[in-house]
């Protein structure tokens, strides 16, 4: 139980970092951390092999995005971390974690799962929705979708243990990362061409 809370706090830290930072390196580090937390929370419902598959898939997604971004021109907005709306993002991150906690209490009763697991899952889902909602930058959108799905997978793991679903979710996580990587390459191609 204590380890679940630690994993949820890890996710909380990763969510704050994802929402506040605009540097892709920090963002990907937070994403990797978030998958570690998700792995631990999924472990409560799934065997270690299946949970580890989620962790590895998540980290592969981070690697695919990181390698692509490292080899393309860096995002001009990447360095402007605190100057633009940093306080606002901090506030929304705090609000999201609070909302997730309130909803988690109901969800844990409903699904019969531990509170930290429900909180961790909902926290990632709200963070993902916030990321998608507050930006139109491709990196943030892809990170938002990956975060949202990671949160959903934590909660869904408690109610569904199908191998086909696990495989499809892994394909979708990797597919989203590769989609993002393709978008960054295409954008870099246009910049080089112009």
């Amino acid at each position: 139980m204590l380890l679940n809370w630690i994993a949820s706090l890890l996710i909380l830290a990763a969510s704050f970092s994802l929402l506040i930072n605009r540097d892709w390196r920090w963002n990907l580090a937070a994403l990797a951390l978030q998958y570690l937390g998700a792995f631990w929370l999924v472990l409560a419902s799934w065997p270690i092999a299946a949970s580890a598959a989620k962790l590895i898939t998540g980290w592969m997604a981070c690697a695919a995005l990181g390698l692509t971004l490292a080899n393309t021109k860096s995002d001009p907005a990447a360095e402007k971390t605190w100057q633009e709306g940093g306080l606002f993002r901090l506030f929304t991150a705090a609000l999201a974690s609070l909302v997730a906690f309130i909803l988690a209490a109901q969800l844990s009763t409903r699904l019969g799962i531990a509170l930290p697991i429900a909180w961790g899952g909902l926290l990632l889902m709200t963070t993902g929705l916030l990321l998608i909602g507050v930006t139109v930058r491709p990196l943030q959108v892809i990170l938002g979708l990956l975060t949202l799905l990671a949160g959903f997978e934590i909660i869904y793991a408690a109610i569904e243990t199908s191998e086909l679903v696990a495989a499809a979710q892994a394909v979708i996580t990797l597919g989203l990362a590769l989609t993002g990587a393709y978008m960054f390459l295409a954008a870099a191609g246009e910049e080089q061409a112009s």
């Binding site: 139109v136 989203l176 978008m183 390459l185 295409a186």
Partner: peptide, 23 residues
């Protein structure tokens, strides 16, 4: 998305909305 074109808002929204439907 062709290989040398920035992704537009339409493509990002297409992926986002369809992904939101799945969960």
């Amino acid at each position: 998305l062709p290989p040398h074109q920035k992704p537009g808002r339409g493509l990002l929204r297409f992926i986002t909305f369809q992904t939101l439907a799945m969960p």
